[in-house]
Write a protein that binds this DNA or RNA. Sequence first.
DNA 1: ACGAACCATTTCCTTACCTCA
DNA 2: AATGAGGTAAGGAAATGGTTC
Length: 265
Amino acid sequence: MICNTRMSLSLGSSTTATPHDESIHHQNNKNRKSINDDHQELTLCLSTSSEFTNCNMNNRQLGGVNSSFSNTNVKRERDASLEEEVVENLETKKVVIVSPKVLVDDDEDVHKYGTRKKLRLTKEQSDVLEDIFKEHTSLNSRKKRDLARRLSLRPRQVEVWFQNRRARTKLKQTEVDCEILRKCYKDLKYENRRLNKELQELKYLKMSAPFRVQQSAATLSMCPTCERTYNSATGDNSTKISFSIGDQKPHFYGSFANPSTALLS
DNA sequence: ACGAACCATTTCCTTACCTCA
DNA sequence: AATGAGGTAAGGAAATGGTTC
């Protein structure tokens, strides 16, 4: 499903650009902030909301790496040991070794070559970030700066890493919750089926021996605390039905309110 | 009102794995 | 059987736009 989405989106990005798109692309490269500012004005200029949506989409797509406007297709290979980038210009068929300093971003978000740098954090950097994340899932600006300096990263990179890390954690938790809910549903379905079966049996009993059932029902009383029935005649408590319902109800609602806690209950 | 921080979503890149010629 | 090319899924870094404080 993820892949399908991805495929359809990338197909969208390869569509032929209109002059309108081109001007937006130019703006985007020039200054992303000004585009954001222009957005409101653009919204007013466009007559329909669908037009705005399309424009907005193109704007984002064209702002990405290797857009269809890029006259240089850059293929990069990272050699971590050499700390160098191999850049191949497909037009000139020349392979150029670029020192990492050239490719590493400066403080601004505008990239050289008009491409976004995709770097892989080193094992050491990731380990340190993971350790810090275990202690605190978010950083204040001072810690962020210190950490960035320590890892030779930009503060923005540290910030993004923490954002993505939180998102991954949340996603995993959602998956766990989903699994718990699935199990809850399965259990409840089973319980529901069982209760229906019992109900049918009781109905059958009532039909076959109305007097007997009436008599035993008259001797049953409900315990106000545990909601179990109690037969005052025989001293027998907790018939199957009342026990199940009384036991399940709080558990059921608790599970949906916070699925993660269902495991503990 | 403005900016910083954060979140959700999307885009892009890399890597690993698989299939096939 | 070995191998290289091409396709695909998954994971992660970064961009983008919106929201909150």
